[in-house]
């Protein structure tokens, strides 16, 4: 499978990466080079093979329903949450106005 400039532009938009027309054009051969190469996977007979779901056999552990059992994974840390924000006001994160 291969991509064209239009697809590259669409993918960039989906990934929220602004690219210029020239950049999109330059990416076409680069991505196709990689995609051509990964296409060899199609040769592999995978009939009856399950996709890998856990690389090392391990069971999903779950936690008890307890609030702030571990302070590292609990709430009540607004200052830490907002400390690195480019724009925080009145205890909120601020973003350019959204019209829904």
């Amino acid at each position: 499978m291969s991509v064209d400039k239009e697809t590259v532009t669409k993918i960039a938009s989906l990934a929220r990466i602004a690219i210029s027309d020239d950049e999109a054009g330059a990416l076409v051969p680069e991505l196709n080079n990689i995609l051509d190469w990964v296409d060899q996977l199609g040769e592999v007979d995978v009939s009856g093979v399950e996709p890998m779901s856990a690389v090392i056999p391990n069971k999903l552990r779950m936690r008890e329903d307890i609030i702030n059992a571990d302070p590292l994974t609990g709430g009540g840390v607004r200052d830490k949450i907002l400390a690195n924000a480019p724009d925080a006001e009145d205890g909120f994160f601020a973003v350019p106005k959204v019209i829904e």
Binding site: I81, E89, F93, A94, V95, P96, K97, V98
Partner: peptide, 14 residues
């Protein structure tokens, strides 16, 4: 998201 707290920003409460 809250839209009426600020003229040009939306506020995010998580």
């Amino acid at each position: 998201l809250m839209h009426d707290q600020h003229p040009t920003s939306s506020y995010v409460d998580l």
